[in-house]
Design a protein around this nucleic acid. Structure first.
Lengths: 334, 334
DNA sequence: CTGTTAGCGCTTTCAT
DNA sequence: ATGAAAGCGCTAACAG
């Protein structure tokens, strides 16, 4: 039925070992025998069985990646960065959506480990003790990708979310805004939620502006929740002159809600956010936002993982990528 | 080092076969021995090796999916549909981006097959003879997902792109438009390109409107190319009263280009497209478009594949999902 | 440069 | 209900 390395060996009149060598590009084969083997392979239509190879060599050249939701543009961009680099180093990726839900995350970590991935890229929500426990059963390297965890034990790559938020709010402050609303993500989410919220608070504090609880609305990162939040702000007796949104998508919702109410952006209200997803350049006015290098977060994570899998010495296990304020058209001086 | 089924057997005082049985939920095990084995597993922290299992059983419970570009919102949505159903049937997916490039597509098909996936989901560009050749070397089922191919040999799920385009243009016609521009994708692309272009042409023909070559512009599916196309249309001596765009993203570019030029949508120009990506509801005016059920295309493909892998009898190998015109705000009567 | 020989960790008849 | 044993298809010493 299926042709094996043994069939090729017989066909070529050599041993399995020799076939294995030519398949694996081992230089220790006489060009002539190499040729014979290639011909036999061709003739028989031999295709190496990677599973058998994986069992024998204890390497599968596949890595697991757990991601919150591939249909989310931000994560999809990260995933592309991951896959490109994986590909470059001849790895394949097994992709699992876990929706930032603990049970699902832990379950997929375990099945990925059962499948003998050579490494694991984890992009999740909160990292609990149970996560750490699961990680510790692994005998392969793991890197956290855009995922925060207390302590310094694990390899990780991310941006400084708090600083990014801080910089966004700082820009508003510099433009003279003092009454600044925030549309936050869920505060349980360490990165997109809590850190960005803290960045907002401490930029305000630094500028001597009193924090006003009634000026922050919690959204769910989606467009509609941006709309809801802006509606709320517009009904305030004294409405903010600027809004800081934790994500682009909510910011765009906010912009549209304001425009729908007959207000001009940034004339009447300025809006800034963080992400710089592609949508930021697909709105009117163009969205001012702080760029988070999604693709690079994925690419750098994967590159780090390849080094770890290769047992190379890695100087710094934690890498923080730079964010950058992209000034476009949605922020004006007050 | 690693604990194997043999270690568990020894620890539990049974044979490997018995351990294998309890791990695989084979009912032929006395509850008492089952318990003993579970305890041993627990005590030793045993984790079954899926690679070894795969070699022995010739099933890997993983399927390969080749996709053009996971960072594209449309495909990402399809991928989510695929993964959800895969998960439901206890499969994992190996995801490969191939950018609709033949060489890359064929390469990944082969590595996926080497990795002994139990099935393959192919989402690509043109399916050439070389593709067919690669497919024919497979001993596992393959389903084409959102990918067209002449002949009726392969399982496939998709929408009727030509009809979808036709329906979009028909709406414009029904609203009284006669001078209708089209922003097309690359005509080499069978689905998003050629089929939609044909739908446009034949809707026109049906309505007795002469086809005018100068009214179609080829874009690359991206926002910017929508902008370029609209600029072109606006400079025409007699500009169109409506535009049909092959994709939402180009449509949004077109809308913005018109608005930037001081024109009102749909007052001055109507715009319709096909896709109904999430962005369609994230523009002003809300985009009228014909909905393509991306998630379902993925989900149904994967479901079909599970049946095929399970050797179930499948009534129809080709399934065409329904599209639907979603009327929002970007089309007006002329 | 090439061949021999053990496994890798599990499933799966076949007995019992 | 359980065990023995033969592979699954390949890699990796080791010898020569």
């Amino acid at each position: 039925m299926t042709v094996t390395i043994y069939d090729v060996a017989r066909e070529a009149g050599v041993s399995m070992a020799t076939v294995s060598r030519v398949v694996n590009n081992n230089p220790n084969v006489k060009p002539q025998t190499r040729k014979k083997v290639f011909e036999a392979i061709e003739r028989l239509g031999y295709r190496p069985n990677a599973v058998a190879r994986g069992l024998a060599s204890k390497k599968t050249t596949t890595v697991g990646v757990v991601i919150p939701d591939i249909s989310n543009a931000i994560f999809a961009e990260v995933a592309r960065g991951i896959e490109d680099i994986a590909n470059m180093y001849h790895y394949n990726i097994i992709l699992c959506n876990a929706d930032k839900r603990k049970e699902k995350e832990i379950r997929v970590i375990n099945t990925l480990l059962e499948k003998q991935v050579d490494g694991l890229l984890f992009m999740g929500g909160v990292v609990t003790d149970e996560h750490m426990q699961a990680f510790q059963t692994a005998t392969v390297p793991i890197v956290l990708c855009g995922t925060n965890v207390e302590g310094n034990t694990m390899a990780a790559v991310d941006i400084d979310h708090q600083q990014a938020a801080h910089d966004a709010v700082k820009l508003l402050l510099d433009k003279g805004h003092r009454r600044i609303g925030m549309i936050s993500g869920n505060l349980q989410d360490p990165n997109n939620g809590f850190s960005r919220y803290n960045g907002y608070k401490n930029a305000l504090e630094e500028a001597g502006v009193a924090f006003d609880e009634s000026l922050v609305r919690i959204g769910n990162h989606r467009y509609e929740s941006g709309i809801e939040a802006m509606k709320y702000f517009l009904e305030l007796p004294e409405r903010p002159t600027a809004i800081f949104s934790a994500t682009d998508e909510m910011a765009i919702g906010a912009i549209h809600a304001a425009q729908d109410a007959g207000l001009a952006i940034p004339g009447d209200i300025s809006v800034i956010s963080v992400d710089n997803s592609r949508m930021a350049s697909m709105v009117r006015p163009l969205l001012t936002t702080v760029a988070q290098p999604m693709y690079d977060i994925g690419a750098v994570s994967m590159r780090l993982l390849t080094k770890l899998m290769n047992k190379e010495n890695v100087e710094k296990g934690k890498v923080t990528l730079m964010h950058e304020v992209i000034q476009r058209q949605s922020v004006a001086e007050v």
